[in-house]
Simulated scan of single mutants.
Amino acid sequence: MAAQASPPTKKVLVPIVAGTEPVEAAVPIDVLRRAGADVTVASADDGELVVEVMYGVRIVADALVAGGDCAAAHFDLIVLPGGVPGAANLGGCAALEAMVRRHAAAGGLYAAICAAPPLALASWGMLNGLKATAHPLFVDKFPPEVAAVDASVVVDASAVTSRGPATSTEFALALVEQLYSKNKAEQIAKEMLVRYDAGYTIDEVNSVQWKCNGTPKVLVPVANGTEEMELITIIDVLRRADADVVVASAENAGVEIVARHGMRIVADTTLDEAAADDQTSSFDLIILPASSKHELSLSKPILI
């Protein structure tokens, strides 16, 4: 009896641009790659593979949106992250608009989060007659042809929309369900320890009061194999809180690292340089994002 052929790998495009919200890009990339999808991160910045998104995070794209290989490729899903001005920048990318239109006309799934549903998809007329959601600050940007819905994730026809960074995981799991199955989404959620029971409490065994003088200085060491979702979320949230976050590569080859699920990220400096710099070598907090595939060791002590 002949062996049953494996189903074809699902192909996903995630375009990024200057001003993209990093969590809204990193979480779908991470979750979809966990599910087995072949995810291409494509830069919509003219000719630039290294894209500086919001909060100073630098991501190395796999391809260019306007590049021949990317433009001609077939995708099962195209996911637009939000961000300011990232969503508007994506909406203004003619090459991306043409690609998404062709994709949708062929029956492909397309998705957007945060400001991207109104500022990109809706601006192209691709949510007309559908229900959709967006970040509360951008819901009023939907045209009358779109039925705005107050929900974390909305699936209507071939379009999936969501609200913002905090709903990125739910959004990504919904994409897994649409591409694969509900069972697959539940499996990934379980592996990620995603909890749906909002309102749970945590009892601290050894309560610690954190203090620092002035702007908190935070060191985040990274290396090849670092879990990108953990890394990007840490950087994003702390920089939103105005912390001085230094992302330092522990790799000898330089500041670019390849994260656990293939996302390429450019650190601010190397770990040795961070330790040697008198201005930054004293930190209020050191955070080690991790994964099951690597262990990060500090090559020299860093004073806290």
Rank of each mutant, 00 (worst) to 15 (best):
G107N: 13
G108L: 02
L109H: 01
Y110W: 14
Y110Q: 01
A112T: 01
A112I: 00
I113S: 02
C114S: 08
A115V: 04
A115K: 07
P117R: 09
P118D: 15
L121I: 08
S123F: 05
S123Y: 03
W124H: 05
M126S: 03
M126L: 13
N128K: 14
N128S: 12
G129C: 06
L130W: 02
K131T: 07
K131Y: 08
T133F: 02
A134I: 04
V139H: 07
D140M: 14
F142S: 04
P143N: 11
P144I: 14
P144S: 13
V146D: 02
A147G: 09
D150C: 06
D150P: 01
D150W: 03
A151G: 08
S152A: 14
V153T: 02
V153N: 00
V154I: 09
A157L: 04
V160Y: 01
T161I: 11
T161E: 11
S162R: 06
S162M: 06
G164A: 09
P165Y: 05
P165K: 06
P165L: 05
T167I: 08
S168V: 04
S168T: 07
E170L: 09
A172T: 05
E177C: 00
E177K: 09
Y180P: 00
N183E: 15
N183Y: 05
K184F: 00
K184Q: 10
A185R: 03
A185Y: 01
Q187G: 04
I188F: 05
I188T: 01
I188E: 00
A189N: 05
A189I: 08
K190P: 00
E191N: 09
E191T: 12
M192N: 03
R195A: 10
R195W: 10
D197T: 08
D197C: 07
A198D: 12
G199Q: 06
Y200L: 14
T201Y: 12
T201P: 07
I202D: 03
D203C: 15
D203F: 15
D203P: 13
V205D: 08
N206A: 09
K211A: 07
K211H: 12
C212N: 15
C212V: 11
N213P: 15
G214P: 12
T215M: 14
T215Q: 11
T215D: 03
T215K: 11
K217W: 02
